[in-house]
Amino acid sequence: MIRLEALNKSYVMSEHSLHVLKDLSLEIAEGELVAIMGSSGSGKSTLLNVLGLLDRYDSGAYHLGGKLARDLSETEAAKLRNSHLGFVFQSFHLLPFKTAVENVALPLYYSGVARRKRNAMAASMLERVGLGDRLDHLPSQLSGGQKQRVAIARALVTDPKVLLADEPTGALDSQTSTEILELLLEVNAEGRTVVIVTHEPDVAARTRRVIHLADGRIGEDRRQEGG
């Protein structure tokens, strides 16, 4: 599903350039549940941005579902993000002036689904994440855990192959974190590839593969029994 070959990425600052990802090679198969860990500055966020087609890379190759990312135009990348990828962020990134249903329906708007149909799809997705009674609430009327559920529903509504989560529990208390993590495990159980960037060992412990990044390289790639 995801294949990186000798990938390099630098940020050019005003005077010097910062080499963030160094000859990174990595393969993630379909249906895997992977945690990416590393200290801040290890390049894990950059890696997620590259995986999410949000950022470009300098050299090497990134294949997503058999497609080479480098060849994609901005428009093609946008379409691929829409259909193949789902994003979950630490700070949720819900649009504050839209209701839960409208937030979840937003990706469907960009894939050209008619209004009535996408609202119905969004509502059923919200029911699946346990928010069937919060459809018309604004984000400000929801708790942190509920917001993240809405965000996960939004990530899943286009039925993507890959879910990319950037510190999904970073802003949540431990009780809620566990619930959200359970939800992500369910998503993975449906056969979707789930990649979670986290610095919490508790979260990483529940996955089946933990990749440690250190200074732009893979320090450790360990498979484990998730639980």
Binding site: T75, A78, R81, N82, S83, L95
Partner: peptide, 16 residues
């Protein structure tokens, strides 16, 4: 800015 960035992440093309 943030909203537009999010829309881009969710699949909004530059044209849209």
């Amino acid at each position: 800015t943030k909203e537009i960035g999010l829309r881009r992440a969710l699949g909004a093309t530059p044209f849209s």
